[in-house]
Structures are given as C-alpha cells and as structure tokens.
Design a protein around this nucleic acid. Structure first.
Lengths: 337, 337
DNA sequence: ATGAAAGCGCTAACAA
DNA sequence: TTGTTAGCGCTTTCAT
C-alpha cells in the first residue's frame, strides 16, 4: 500500500505538504502543488480514509433512522437524503428499525461513538430526554414527524392545513357524511390531520359524528378493517379521508368487496401521494407529501449544521398540495390550493 | 473522553488486558475480567471505534449498491440485508445509483479505500473486467441478477423455470394467444424468463408469434405502452405474462382503459410479488421472488466470506412459487409449484 | 510556503 | 495469563 510518506519522498517534500495539497491546496505554492500531484498520480496514491477518520474524528457519514425502508414514503425520503448526501461527498448509513424502539436506541450509539457525524430521524419514538441530550451534542434533523418539548431542526408539512384541505375537498363535492381514518394517534402528525378535518367539518356547518372518526395505523390492513366497521353503520359515510394512501386503498378495497363502487358510492381522499396511488384503480385523490424534497432538505440542513457549529435550529415547512385523481369522481376541476 | 488507558489504570491492568476483555474475553482470567468490566462501567467507557477501524483496517460496514431504493423489490432486498447485517453487528451503507453507471463506479472506491469490508450488488452494470478484479480482492455478492464470465458469489432464482411456470399457468387456463412483455433484454434474467416462456409455448404445441413478444423495462409505464401496442394487433392476445408486477399493472390499466375486463377479457401474470400486487385490483397472479430472503441470504454469504478468506464462490438458487390471485380468473385452484 | 514531529486510541506481536 | 511497546497513516501545531 503506497502511503503519504512515499508520495512525499518522490516529490521531495514533507508529508505535511502532501496533506496540504489534499486538504487545502491553496496553501501550497503552485509549482510544489503540481509536483505533489504528479507524484500522487505516478504512484496511484489513495489516501487511507480510515486513518483520516480516526485523526479527524469525522467520517463524512450520516445515519438515517427509518421505521421501515420497504415503505414507499420512507424509501422516497431516503432517496432524497442519499442524493443530497452523495452530492456533498457524504455517505448514508441505513438504520432500519422495523418500528422496534430498542433498535432505534441502539443506532444512537453510532452517533455517540462518532461513527457518524450526524443523524436524520424519520421516526419519533425516542423519548424527549434522550433526544434533547442528543440534539445538544450532535447534529440531528427530524423529518415528517415533529415533537413538542424538543428543540430540534425539523422538516415537515402543515398537517393541519392538509387535513383541512382534504376534508374541504370532499365537502365541496357535496358530501355530508365524511369519515376520517387517522394514523396512530400517538403521532402529532396524525392528530394535526384530524384537527384539520375537524376544522373543515365544523366551519362548514356539517354535523360532527364521532362514529365517523376512526384510528388506523397507516397500513392497508388497518384501512380495510376500519372501513368494514364504517360500512356497518346504519347511516354509512359517503366519503372518507384516510391519513395515508395505503389506508385509502384498504378503504376502497373494503368498499368494493361490499359490492359498492368507488367513485360513485364512496369518495376517498388519501395522503402521501406514493407512486402506487396513481397506479391504483381508481387513481387516488391525495394530499401530496413532497417526500424526496423533504429528504433533500433535511440532508441540506444537516450539512449546514455540520459545517457551522453555531447553527440555530430551524423548523422548515414544505408545501404540499391536493392531487386530484379519480377516487372522488370529477365534480371538481384542477388543483386545489 | 475517557479512553482505554484510563480504564486500565483504574483496574490496575494494562491496556492490552482491557483490549482483550473487549475483543476476546475468554483469554482473560475471570477475576481480572470482572475488575476491568467494573472499571469500564464506572467510567462509562466507550471504545473509540474510529481508532479501532483504523488499527484493524476493518469497519464492520458493508455497501449495498442498489439501482433505486424507491423500487419496492429493491427496498425489500435491502430490508433483508439490513436485518441480517444488524444481527451480526454490521452496518449497511447505502449506495443508490439511480441507474447511473458512473455513480456505481464511484461507490466501488469505498471498497478500495477499505471504507467498507464488502459489497452486495443489486445491479449488474459494472463491466466484467472491473468486477473480476474487485471480486479477487474483496468479498462481493451479486443478488437477483447474474453474469456470465465473472466468478462471483450469486443469490438468485431460477428465472427460466419461473418464466416457464408463469406461461404454463396461462396455457393450463386454456389460453392460446399468450403475450410476453420482458424486462430489458440487456439483463440475463430477462432473457431467461423469456426462454422459459418460449419453452412453455413450444412444448405445449402452441404457435409462436413474434408479435406477441415485446420488450419493456420493468416499469409501469413500459407495461402500459407495450400493452397498448398489443391491443392494436388485429388478433390480440387473451393473456399476458409480464416480467414484473409493475408492468403487469400497466398491462391491466391499458386494457381497462380500452374498456376491456381483467380478468375476463385478459388474463395477466406478473413477476416479483411486491406488496402492492396483492393490494392492486384485481390482485395479481405473480411469480413470487423471495426478496427479503434473497437479501438475508446474500448478507449471510458475505459474512461467511468476510470471516473465511478461503471462502469459495457459491451460486445459491432460491425457491420461488406462483401466487394465484384474481388477475387470471379462478379456473385453476391452489398453488402451482 | 514548508518541514519536523507529536500524537490520535487502539491492537497485537512478543516477552515475561 | 498479563504486560510492554511499536506502530497503524494521517493531520496539525509550531517553528523556520
């Protein structure tokens, strides 16, 4: 293995100069620099990255903690993160937790051991105290979810507004009995979407009916199951706003399985705009969450933090919009908001 | 930062002993070991992983090169890889190439720089010569795709047989005009599935019709487009075997858009068994590729290689099976091996 | 603008 | 079974 000292000898300089050429070229006289670069090329020298990491206590690697990489919405965010990282010569270490909190805590050690320079969380299962400690010591960005009681850089969308827009869309179409299937109530994001839904119903003067509000867990199966229950009501809803596209698909499947038509006998709005929501039949009208952009933005904020120790925590709210497809029928034209 | 020497002093031993307790506990007398462990706990000592990586020229990290992490079939494989890695105290570095060959070559440097101990390829765009050089020097496993002219450990399924089974299923249902939409012909895997299809058609005595064989690229869009062309034939097919579930969905969408029914007026078999193939309406009959298991297996082979320098390259072929859903109608019962 | 040299913290070969 | 010690290859401070 050819090392720095070999290059130095060939170029008749010290290792310090070779190091400078590599990390801080302007600080070296041009003729010297060229001499060194020629030696590097001639010997086909490759710096030992591990030595460098050790010496500098930096790895140019960040950790992404994701509940489940199989889930489209998360893999899209990771895609955005990876792209931004690669552009800035950073690597992405994957921390898949399978929604297992212990695994999540395990991964945090990678930060403490300085195996990664920073972290992006696509999941908010860690307790506030641990997170606060972490955030004080290391660059961390939280994406999609957000928390109360932790001062942390966050990238998210306005879930209250999004929930309201989704419900308003159904109201505009003339629906009076509009159900909502939320994500797990344990997440602020789910509660906010519910709040948006409640705002829309209340402001429009429609009657609120508790039985039309149900809790799911974002999965197809939970959407299917909750819809089955809704269909059993003597006065069933004519429209459903589901807090994820997967649940919306479950809703539609359950409805079709009862011999009812979507659209026609039920209007459905989903959330996320995952790729399959346009492939599904009917195409799902949904609130588009800009997942790739969210990933991108979070990585860029993390880089800012990494490069600037005095970085102040920021809350970034990205735009999202309603994408109209077939699942509600076509009584409304064009985009909303 | 508390370091090994601090622990050593507190425990009245040398750093070597502390190191042994950490890496090779059996080689230390029990009483000494306990003394050291107590000191570690008392000081809350965390080993400096970067120093260890440097010293040992090993990182306990592997690289996964994936064409597109957004794509379900790949994210499932990655899921399997990550799970097996985590279990063995290995990390996974994500190398998303977006099907960009240059990025793929870039990532290879992580191996050469020893930033990762090994690599799993979910994509086969690298030229044989480079790959051969790499495989000689570093542990590498190729998953799903396979190559001629490179002696490399491979985890895959029997695509010829799978292609044959898919086509045979349609033949058994009584179809005479069965089309095939392949993946990109550049991949052996696509060619093998096509071969399987050809075998089935030929053996059954059906007439081969070139116009029924079309090339896609695994995407929904390509399935849609190729199906549009097939529908324009004066003698259109009554069944289609598509080489991916996404293409199968494109096929179904295109057919429905022409006012035809699936199943009923067209039978469709897909490939992969991604999550959405059961959610899609109609549920897609498909050749199940055990993506998570493939990921798992590949990681385990990589670990074997990492732990055993004399490891001999292996070719592992995993079982896959036809999953019957609604997209072909219900004339055949149960599973077909 | 450049060089000399002191480590970074750990591991492992060798010695005892 | 345990200790001594020489580095691993690079970066960076300090001196020139």
């Amino acid at each position: 293995m050819v090392k720095m000292i070999d290059v130095a000898k060939l170029a008749n300089v010290s290792t310090a100069t070779v190091s400078r050429v590599l990390r801080n070229p302007e600080s070296v006289k041009e003729t010297t620099r060229e001499k060194v670069l020629r030696s590097i090329a001639e010997l086909n020298y490759q710096p030992n990255v591990l030595a460098r990491h050790f010496r500098r206590s930096k790895t140019n690697t960040i950790l992404v903690i994701v509940p489940n990489i199989e889930n489209t919405i998360f893999s899209q965010m990771v895609q955005g993160i990876e792209a931004a990282a690669a552009q800035n010569n950073f690597r992405v270490l994957l921390g898949n937790t399978n929604r297992n909190v212990d695994k999540e805590y395990d991964f945090l050690n990678l930060l403490r051991q300085r195996q990664v320079d920073g972290m992006i969380l696509l999941s908010g299962k860690i307790d506030n105290q641990t997170l606060n400690e972490l955030v004080e010591q290391y660059p961390v960005v939280l994406v999609s979810e957000y928390l109360e009681g932790v001062d942390i850089t966050t990238v998210c969308i306005d879930n209250v507004t999004c929930g309201r827009i989704a419900a308003e869309h159904l109201i505009k179409l003339g629906h009076k009995r509009i159900a909502h299937i939320s994500g797990s109530k344990g997440t602020l994001l789910s509660r906010d979407r519910l709040i948006g839904y409640l705002q829309a119903i209340t402001h429009s003067g429609l009657k609120l009916d508790d039985r039309l509000i149900r809790e799911g867990d974002f999965s197809f199966e939970s959407g299917y199951k909750q819809m089955q229950e809704l269909l059993r009501l003597e006065n069933r809803p004519t429209a459903v706003f589901a807090s994820s596209d997967e649940m919306a698909m479950g809703v539609i499947k359950a409805t079709k399985d009862q011999g009812l038509k979507v659209p026609g006998e039920l209007a459905v709005v989903g959330f996320d705009n995952i790729r399959f929501s346009s492939i599904f039949d009917p195409g799902i009208t949904t609130v588009a969450q800009p997942a790739i952009e969210m990933g991108n933005t979070s990585m860029e904020l993390l880089l800012q933090h990494l490069n600037d120790p005095s970085f102040q925590h920021k809350k970034i709210m990205l735009k999202s919009e309603l994408v109209i497809r077939e699942s509600c029928g076509w009584n409304v034209k064009g985009k909303v908001e």
